[in-house]
Simulated assay, not measured.
Amino acid sequence: MEVRYASHPNEVKQFDTERLRQEFLINSLFVPGQLQLVYTHVDRFIVGGVIPTKEPVKLEADAKDMGTEYFLERREIGIINIGPAGVVTVDGVRYEMQTKDCLYIGLGSKEVLFESVDEANPARFYLNSTPAHKQYPTVKSALEEASPNHLGSITNSNERTIYRFIHQNGVQSCQLVMGMTLLKPGNMWNTMPCHTHNRRSEVYLYFDMPEDGVVFHLMGEPDETRHVVMRNEQAVISPSWSIHSGVGTSNYTFIWGMAGENQTFEDMDAVAMQDIK
């Protein structure tokens, strides 16, 4: 498991492109047959990906970095399948996962296994995990069961639908909030006008992008913005002090996960367009 440390905004102002990517970009999460994990000290988020092939892949703790016997001993996790059909087995109970299905697993579940229905067309499971203090039940939620919110317009190139899976009025959790935003064809902008939320950090996974497509993910303090060039199935860590917005060369989909002081989706500090630099 790779470990990342938190960075102060005054320090980030001095980063060149390569250093910015080293600190915040998660370049490779999906490797056939392997569990890939990144542990960031930003709200102690763990971000991961797994492509099961011939054999099931087990969710395992890194004893050195996590200090636990099993992964969910003191954690909760949200899982979204961004690939073909798969199965997640939680302590012997199987959950069939179609494309864009979400599964929440609570504190204390001991064995989690990932499988693909067809090894020739394997599932691609994306993971967000945060510390937990209370046990909530394991719940699967399909995309059509999530809470949709239609925003933006084609005039502003940001017509999109936000689907909330794990949140206060949906699947219950301790602190993890997780959902997915789908941009409609012809739309390229997300989360603009932008905002910060100093009480919560966030992680984005961009996917459903063409091979030659990119997203310019905007980050940094509102008056000291930077960008990270993102390609398909790459993730980026967004500290609480940073904006998190993006514009692509075509429409795309992204998964957002949040952790921190509260679970209030609307708790954000708006940034006026004239204040962005």
Rank of each mutant, 00 (worst) to 15 (best):
L127Y: 03
D43E: 14
R124F: 05
S147A: 12
N128P: 01
R200M: 10
C194S: 15
K58Y: 09
P122A: 07
I276Q: 06
Q135D: 12
V38S: 00
P131T: 09
S201R: 06
D101L: 07
T161L: 03
A123I: 06
K110D: 08
T253C: 14
T155K: 15
L182I: 11
D223W: 13
P122F: 04
K184Y: 14
N27L: 10
G186H: 08
E55Y: 11
G152N: 05
N81K: 03
V3L: 14
N81L: 03
R199A: 14
E2D: 14
S250F: 07
Y104S: 01
P239C: 12
E60M: 09
V177S: 07
P122C: 05
F30M: 07
Q135T: 12
H195T: 02
Y39C: 04
A146V: 05
H195Y: 10
T191W: 02
P32D: 07
H227D: 15
F216N: 14
T225A: 14
V42E: 07
E159F: 11
T264Y: 06
Q34K: 14
A61S: 08
P9T: 04
R226F: 13
P122N: 07
E96S: 13
G67S: 08
V93R: 11
G186F: 03
R21N: 15
L37R: 06
L35D: 05
L59S: 01
T191N: 14
R44Q: 13
Y70V: 02
M230Q: 01
P131E: 10
A259D: 07
V228P: 01
R231G: 15
Q274H: 15
E221R: 10
D62Y: 06
L183W: 01
L151E: 13
S173V: 03
K277E: 15
I154L: 15
I77V: 12
F15R: 04
G33N: 08
S240T: 10
S129W: 01
N121Q: 13
K100S: 15
G170M: 04
Q22K: 15
I79V: 15
E55N: 12
T249L: 09
I51R: 00
I166E: 02
